[in-house]
Amino acid sequence: MLFYQLFKSLIGQTITIELKNDIMITGKLISVDQFLNLKLSDVQGTDPKKNPILSSLKTCFIRGNVIRYVLLPQDQIDTQLLKESAIKEAAKIKEEERKMQNRK
């Protein structure tokens, strides 16, 4: 849930997504779900010559599993908070696994 929360906090910001097929898409983040699917508006392909279709879209939905990278706006990220959340998340997952083990 850590990255779901991270993307939720970035709603309204402009982000650039690089897909696994090397396409880059820039747009305003509209929504995110538990699979880290992303919805963008004001979409622009960063290379309009290569992907003319992208510049004809206003909004698009990107399935989470085709994403390779997301370029984040550095000034919007609290790295200290991220680090603490990552530690908490890791501890939570361990605790859940321990419970599952005990149940068996």
């Binding site: 880290l36 390779r68 990278y69 997301v70 370029l71 984040l72």
Partner: peptide, 11 residues
């Protein structure tokens, strides 16, 4: 080079 990057784990 990237300032801040999210990387999907499956890669």
């Amino acid at each position: 080079n990237f300032e801040m990057l999210y990387i999907r784990g499956d890669g």
